[in-house]
Simulated scan of single mutants.
Amino acid sequence: MKIVLFYHSLLSDWNHGNAHFLRGIVQELKVRGHEVQVYEPENGWSLQNLVNEYGPEKLNELHSYYPGLATNFYNLDTLKLDSVLLNADLVLVHEWNDHELVKRIGEHRIGKNYKLLFHDTHHRAVTEKSSMAAYDLSHYDGVLAFGEVIKNIYLQEQWTQKAWTWHEAADDSVFYPRTKTELQGDLVWIGNWGDEERTAELHEFLINPVKELGLKAKIYGVRYPEHALKSLADAGIEYGGWLPNYKAPEEFAKYKVTVHVPRRPYVEALPGIPTIRPFEALSCGIPLITAPWEDAENLFTPGQDFLVAQNGEEMKQHLRTVLSDENKAGALVAQGLKTINQRHTCAHRVNELEIICGELGIDSAKILGNKKEQNLHAK
């Protein structure tokens, strides 16, 4: 198939979690013999922040982890869809795109043979409903939603006639267990502060337990306000700033445990959506403890793949257990990694996407692509 994707950024994961999954999907599609073209806006805020703060050499580093990864920059005023979408079989348009772009691609779809899907990987369908309702999806073939509850919103609000659940997953070509050499501490956490959506939770499930247990910990991420940095310093937590996502596996290998603290909108309104961080942590073979979230879609087996702390006191108890009991920690690692490898890699998600393509009527010969390569990578 020729597949064209419009996303905010393939190159930058600076405060841009969608890049994690997108990179893995693009590489997996290419391995299977599909022609993939990614388009992102020129001067996109995520890429500009990355380059401004860390320099263009970071992009060279990215390509050492993702050989052959390439994108195309467009300007909405000069974008020529007839050229870009020539001979396309499948077009994916992410929900972080400009409303005008979404509308224009939909209008271009009229009378064309390619299939067109909108891809939603955020909580704005709940938290910014009017903005999401303003997207014109009338000429789209359907929606890929990263959780069942999001899918149902699109259908109930009649924003689309067809929708599929398409969860995020771990890119196991990059996210796999690294050999542990010299440990640098007890706990590592990788995540952005961002928008005060989980300030209380970060204190209860991360900062306070680390402080009260006297753990050696390090936190990576961006958009940490002064009060957050002060809280980290008061707890004796080292702040590492932005960490390129592809370096997370190397950092996980230097610590004994990590935690997941979901943002409030996911916990309260979007059960079943863990975001991509737990997938990646489990794929790297590090014990994981999470703050409460409802695994409504049975993606995992809580208590076996990871431990769940209902409050700060339970978080401390679980941390003590994992840090002191090597057998328990090892069992969590083994089971979590097994679950990822059996169900939650980008190869699994491409398998699902190819099934959806079949339902949309794309020719099966195009969907199969390089069948030999597909058989090697499908799991």
Rank of each mutant, 00 (worst) to 15 (best):
L5C: 09
F6S: 06
H8I: 09
S9N: 09
L10H: 06
D13L: 05
N15D: 13
G24I: 01
E28W: 00
E35V: 13
V38H: 10
Y39E: 05
Y39I: 09
Y39H: 13
N43T: 12
G44M: 07
W45E: 13
V51A: 10
N52Q: 12
K58C: 11
E61Q: 12
H63E: 15
S64R: 15
G68H: 02
T71R: 10
L76Q: 03
L81Y: 05
N87W: 03
A88Q: 00
L101N: 01
L101P: 00
R104L: 05
G106W: 01
E107F: 08
R109N: 01
K115W: 02
L117M: 00
H119L: 12
T121P: 04
R124Q: 11
T127P: 00
T127K: 07
E128G: 11
M132I: 14
M132R: 15
S138W: 01
S138L: 04
L144Y: 08
A145Y: 08
A145L: 03
Y154I: 03
E157Q: 13
K162N: 15
E168Y: 04
A169H: 02
F175L: 04
Y176Q: 08
P177W: 03
K180F: 07
K180G: 10
E182L: 12
L183Y: 11
L187Q: 05
W189R: 10
N192C: 06
E196V: 09
A200V: 06
A200L: 13
E212Q: 13
L213H: 05
G214F: 01
E226F: 05
H227P: 04
H227V: 11
A228D: 11
S231C: 09
A233K: 13
A233I: 02
D234T: 07
A235D: 04
I237W: 02
L243T: 02
K254I: 08
K256M: 01
T258W: 01
R263Q: 09
R263W: 10
R263G: 12
R264Y: 11
P265Q: 03
P265R: 08
Y266W: 10
E268W: 12
A269W: 14
L270G: 06
A281T: 06
A281P: 04
P287Y: 03
P287N: 04
L288S: 06
T290W: 02
A291K: 04
A296C: 04
T301F: 09
G303R: 00
V308T: 15
E313I: 09
E313A: 12
Q317C: 11
H318C: 11
L319D: 08
L319V: 06
K328H: 11
A329W: 05
A331D: 12
A334Y: 03
R343A: 07
R343L: 05
T345K: 02
A347Q: 05
A347S: 14
H348V: 00
H348E: 00
H348I: 00
V350M: 00
I355D: 13
C357R: 09
C357K: 06
N370C: 09
N370P: 05
K371Y: 14
K371I: 15
E373G: 08
E373S: 15
Q374V: 12
